[in-house]
Amino acid sequence: MSNSLIKPRIERPPLSQILIGKTPLFLVPLLMLIGLLAIGSGSTWLTLTAAGLAMGMMIFIMASGLTVIFGLMDVINFGHGAFISLGAFAGFTILGLLGGWIESPSIALNLGAILLAVAFAMLVTGLAGYGFERLIVKPVYGEHLKQILVTMGGLVVTQQLIYVIWGPDEIVLARPTALQGSFVIFEAAIEKYRVLAIAIGLALFAAMRLVLSKTRIGLLVRAGVQNGEMVEALGYPIQKLFLVVFMAGCALAGLGGVMWGIYQETITAHMGAEVMISVFIVVIIGGLGSIEGCFIGAMLVGLLTNYTGFLVPKLSLISTILLMGIVLMWRPQGLYPVVKTH
C-alpha cells in the first residue's frame, strides 16, 4: 500500500481571512451601537431597538422561505407576497372564530388563539404552495424571465381570490387583549406583541438551523442548494425535494403574514406585495440561499428602518436600499452567499 505517501494537507485560510468571514456577525451589534450614539437617549434607543428587532424577526419569517426557494430551486418567486396575504386572511378567519379567546385577559387563551391561527394559515398556504408549484412554477424551471411573469400573474390571481372570499375592504385585526400595551423596562416602553414576535422569530431561526444541520432532509436541502445535479446522481429525486421546500417556504410566508397582520392591526390583499420590497432586500443582503445571512439582513433592515425613522424620517424609506447598496459594494454576492453566482 502506498498510503504512507499521502500526507494530510489542508489549505487553511489565514486568521485575518477567518475574521473577515465572521464580520457580518458583528454588523447587528455595530448598528445598535451606532444607533445608541446617534439617538443619545437610552430609553428611546431601547424602544426603537425592540421595535426594530421585532420588525426584523417578522421580515425574517417571511423571507426565510423565499431565500431557500431561491437557493435550492433557482426560482424567483414574485408571488411569495401572495402567501403572506393569504396567510394573514386565513389567520384572521380563525381569530374571528375564536373571538372569545382573543378578548379574554388570559394570556394562555390569547396565545392559543394565535397558535391555532398560525397553524391554519400555514396549512392553507402550504397547500396553496403545492398548487402554485405544480401549476405555475414547475413548467418554468430554469427560465427566470418566465418565472417572474408567471409568478407575478399568480400574485395577481391570488389577490383577486382574496377579494372574492374576504371582500375588497381593509380588515381591522385587533391584537389579543393580553398582548396589548407595553412592558416598561428602564423607562422604555416595549410593546408586548413585539416581545412575542422576537421570541417566535428566534425560535424559528433556531428550529431552521436545527433542521438544516441535524436532519437528512436538511442535509439534502443544503446539498441541493450547492449542486442539485449531484444530489440526483446520488439517487435522491430533487423534484420532490423542490416541492417540499416550496410548500414549507409558502407556509413560512403564511406564518409571517399572520404575525405581520396582527402587528399592523390591519390586513389587505396587497399587504404581502407591499412588504415584499423589504423581503427581497433582506434576501439579497443575506446572500441567496442563506438562512444565517437572511437572519442578519432582516435584523439590519428592521433596526435601520426604526433608527432612521426616528432620526431622519425622510431618509427612512430609502435607508434599506442604501444599506443594500453598501453591502453589495462590500460583498457583491451578499453577506453569506450559499449560491455562488458568476
Binding site: L219, R222, A223, Q226, N227, E229, M230, E232, A233, L234, G235, Y236, P237, I238, V338
Partner: peptide, 28 residues
C-alpha cells in the same frame, strides 16, 4: 429513466468536477 432512479440501481457516479458539496463536512 431519471437520474435518481438510475442511481438507485446501485450505480455510483464520480463526475469530472467531483461534485463535492463544499459547505458540507466530509462526514456529511
Amino acid at each position: 429513466e431519471t437520474t435518481p432512479v438510475i442511481a438507485q440501481r446501485e450505480i455510483a457516479f464520480v463526475p469530472e468536477d467531483m461534485g463535492i458539496f463544499t459547505d458540507l463536512t466530509v462526514h456529511e
